[in-house]
Every structure is written in C-alpha cells, then in structure tokens.
C-alpha cells in the first residue's frame, strides 16, 4: 500500500501541490493523470524522497521501488552490461544475482545481442527498453513509470503495455504517470486526476466512468425508425452498424418504448472514455 496524505509543495511562488491525497492498493495499476505541470512528477519525486514535502506525508509498505523517469538519459559511453551491473550494485545486488537478472531481462526485452554495445549506439526505443530493464532489475514491489509512452512508436507502446500487464500479473504494484488517456484506460485499475496540484478525483476507474455516465446508448436494429417520435432525445450519431443516442430519459424506459416499434438487435450503455472525462474534469479551465 502507498498512501499520499495531504501533501503540499511550493517552489518559490509556485504552489506545485495543494493538499494532494490518494492511495495505491497492492497489486494494482494506478494512474496518476494530469496535464503538463499539474504536479505529477513532483508527487513522484516526493514518493521517492528525491525532494521533501512542505507539509503532509507519504506512507508505504513497499521496500523496493523501481523508477523510470520521464527524462531518459543514461551514461552514453558505458557498455550496456556495465551499466546494468552499476545500477545493480547501487541497489545492493550481488554479482551472481545481477548476472542472472540481467540475462533474463535482456532476453525478455530482446536486447541480449546488444549486451556488449555502448549505450550511445541504441535507438530511442531500445534505450527505453534498457531503462525499463534497469527499473525492474532488482525485482521491485512498486514500479513507478513517469510518462513511459512518450516518444515511442505504436509497436513499442504495445510492447510496453504488455510488459506492464505482465508485471501486474506477477503481483507488482505499478504507479503510472501519463497524459496518454487511451493507454491509462487500458491499463489502470484506479486513477487520480490532478489539476494544478489539486486532486480532482481519486479512486477506481470504473467508479469514475460510472459517475460520468450520460445516458448514452449504443443500439443496432433491423429496419428504420424515426427517432423524432421519442421524447427526451438530445443527440443522435451514426456509429458503425448502429447509432449512439443521447437521451434525457432513463435508458430502460427508452428501450421499452423502442422495442414496441422496432426489432432491436443490440442495446448497451456507452461509458464515456477516460479522455472525455479527463477533458471535462481537468481540461475545462
């Protein structure tokens, strides 16, 4: 468990965090979501004790933490295996364990054939993989990923997403800071939305979505129907083989009326996307 409790942080005249609180459950993927400058990185730095809060505290029962920062520089002239060994030693790992873990992750991340190459010879995507390797080398219980999708091509994004899922399945807790809402939506169990250092929402993603339901309905049916005969419809949009209908009426009531005159083949509630919620909640100002 990681608990961020009423944390404040000020840089000069800028209030970076204004009483931020949230709780990350063990074994979950938690999204720290907010626009640039909202205080995500400051929060992570405080969790890692790189900087200290002016007020509030952090409680956690994780002993080993892995971190992949947003800025992804490495010692360019170091050999990849030497670099991994260096970070392994910094984290108190023995030689044999470093070699075992290094070989496992180099193989898993398809970097084995580059083991003796210098870091500066790697492409951006491969450097990203190396960064991920370094962050998981010591088998951390909590893995913090700060904007991990930035600068990656779609294949690399897919690979990273699979890695995160794999780590979650292994029981690791992952704190994911991002403004890529589609990725967060696919990966996160819970989220914290931050705007200008303040919490907008913190809790399960499903609850957030449920709270933003707007009686949007997706339906497919045989034949044609004139929707004007139904009261309370505010918007109709053609989508695939069906329609997205926004109504002021309860969806169940609308379905009962509709089935009386049409052969409905598919009817489901449409949850708002995280991106829509994010723009509505965080991007409104």
């Amino acid at each position: 468990m990681l608990k961020v409790n009423d944390v404040y942080k000020t840089y000069g005249n800028v209030e970076a965090l204004k009483g931020l609180s949230f709780e990350v459950g063990k074994g979950s993927v938690y999204g720290l979501l907010g626009p640039n400058g909202s205080g995500k990185t400051t929060t992570i730095r405080i969790i890692l004790s790189i900087i200290y809060p002016d007020k509030g505290d952090i409680k956690m029962d994780f002993e080993k933490i892995g971190y992949m920062p947003e800025e992804r520089g490495l010692y360019p002239k170091m050999q990849i295996d030497e670099l991994i060994y260096f970070f392994g030693r910094l984290r108190g790992m023995g030689k044999e364990r470093i070699e075992r873990e290094m070989d496992f992750w180099l193989d898993r991340l398809e970097l084995m054939n580059r083991k003796k190459d210098k870091v500066q010879t790697l492409s951006k995507g491969l450097k990203q993989r190396l960064h991920l390797l370094i962050s998981v080398l010591h088998d951390p219980e909590l893995l913090i990923l700060d904007e991990p999708f930035t600068g990656l091509d779609p294949i690399a994004i897919k690979g990273l997403r699979e890695m995160v899922s794999e780590l979650k399945n292994r029981g690791k807790t992952i704190l994911l800071s991002t403004h890529w809402m589609d990725q967060a939506e696919q990966l996160c169990d819970s989220v914290c939305l931050i705007r200008e250092g303040e919490k907008v929402y913190a809790g399960p993603l499903e609850d957030l979505k449920a709270s933003h339901m707007k009686n949007d309905i997706y339906l497919e049916m045989k034949g044609e129907v004139d929707f004007k005969q139904f009261s309370g419809i505010t918007d109709i949009e053609s989508r695939g083989n069906g329609f997205i209908i926004r109504t002021k009426r309860p969806p169940g009531e609308f379905l009962r009326d509709l089935t009386e005159i049409a052969d409905v083949t598919e009817f489901r509630l449409v949850y708002p996307s995280l991106e829509e919620i994010f723009i509505e909640e965080v991007g409104s100002e």
Partner: peptide
Amino acid sequence: NGMIELIISD
C-alpha cells in the same frame, strides 16, 4: 545526460 532523476532515486 538527463539521468539525474534516475541516479538520485538510488
């Protein structure tokens, strides 16, 4: 090098 955050987390 842009790796200060990585190193000072250790």
